[in-house]
Design a protein around this nucleic acid. Structure first.
Lengths: 228, 228
DNA sequence: CTGTGGAGGATTGTTGAACAATTCTTCAAG
DNA sequence: CTTGAAGAATTGTTCAACAATCCTCCACAG
């Protein structure tokens, strides 16, 4: 039996159908993380269906994914809302991050090359964005940097489970009043962390721990006023 | 207007405080974790719809939840199958558990009374079940014990993120050939862990680490032969 | 002016049906 | 025994409809 290369291209098209609800989820996820859909926004099914040109069932399947990622909240018979981080939730987020990230930089086994590369890339992007004063991008890169730290574990499940944590952290950044003062300080500290890790400094765990405590305190204070 | 207490009970049944799809998901989740639906079982939509008396759309929304929890797998145009744990996945599960559980017993701050109570309860249930040789219940209680350890963190998010880990661990137990030999050994070690933790022994972290490495090795070996 | 209550509209929850696409089953022909 | 194709079974996706619930508005009594 011979294989016709032309048929392979044809077969590629129906693959999109599987991704339909996933594509919708990706679009919404991007809008929420980018800040176009701000925390607290109500997501009305009919409007989104016509805007995205999909059926309600497909949209609701996409909602299911976003719910699992905790990017949106569900109120029975009232629908979906973009999640609004609360101060006590921020404290919980950073408690999780301290557990996972501090353990990641401590473990000597398994270098986790993927995570290290992610850290370097994220740092470069952040510095570049900071020069243009694109604080949105700086915040995103900061999260990517710390996701890279968690990825040092080299665990598929751990990365998967941390995704909601990063999402919520990103959301918390959106409800901050002054992103400049916040992010610029931590850019330098990220660089220091990377250098110490590559140097094999054993004090890095304590350093990262303090870093996360500081960030938690500042972020909690910054989102306090927004109490809707 | 007076309130008739008798009518409140009647009104409770038709009053669904949760969506039907999540109720369906709960039923399926229970069946899978309990072992009624064994790993590899194909979940045919039409059969489940008639059995649960719900529509396909509702059932598929429930499927979406179970997919996110990785209790079931999806094959394009072939449907849903109860997830079958693979050896490399088991290794990843225990890598996550070592990070979270070892950190939980180490931290001196915040006693985490809820988690401690969960550990005690789970241990009592496990011992009771072991006497009747109900190894299904012993396995479930073992997982509840370790979930209690993770709950020592007192973090809502961490508990939430660990839920899929416990689910997958429970699934892995189901594909073991000899549950007796496996669980009976770890029952005693669970008791030892609890005692050391309550005594404040600092060596508990290393002890728990070794425990988890042993369990990983044994479990991996036990599920190896089942390669479908 | 306040707030109480209800009518009506808007939105979500759920169902059933329909059709296309794909996979599985069966069975005859080589 | 293998191959191949027709038919059945199952899934992927969309649509329309109805019930249940929530929200808005307004009349009306105090």
């Amino acid at each position: 039996m011979t294989i016709d290369p032309g048929r392979l291209d044809e077969a590629r098209l129906p693959l999109r159908r599987t991704a339909l609800s996933s594509q919708v989820a990706a679009v919404l996820r991007g809008s929420i993380l980018h800040g176009d859909l701000r925390p607290g926004t109500r997501l009305i099914e009919a409007d989104l269906c016509s805007a995205l040109a999909v059926s309600r069932n497909t949209l609701r399947e996409a909602f299911r994914s976003l719910l699992e990622e905790q990017l949106i909240d569900h109120a029975l018979n009232r629908g979906m809302f973009v999640h609004t981080p609360r101060p006590e939730e921020v404290a919980d987020l950073y408690r999780c991050r301290r557990v996972v990230e501090c353990a990641a930089v401590r473990r000597s086994e398994a270098p986790g090359e993927v995570g290290l590369a992610a850290m370097r890339d994220a740092l470069a992007i952040a510095e570049q964005a900071a020069e243009v004063e694109d604080w949105l991008a700086v915040g995103t890169a900061d999260i990517a940097f710390h996701a890279g730290i968690a990825a040092l574990h080299g665990s598929y499940h751990l990365d998967r489970l941390m995704a909601p944590i990063w999402n919520q952290t990103r959301l918390a950044f959106h409800v901050m009043d002054d992103p400049l003062r916040f992010h610029s300080a931590y850019l330098k500290r990220n660089l220091a962390i990377l250098n110490r890790f590559e140097a094999g400094d054993p004090g890095i765990e304590r350093m990262l721990h303090d870093y996360l405590c500081d960030a938690e305190r500042e972020l909690t204070a910054a989102i306090q006023p927004l109490d809707d």
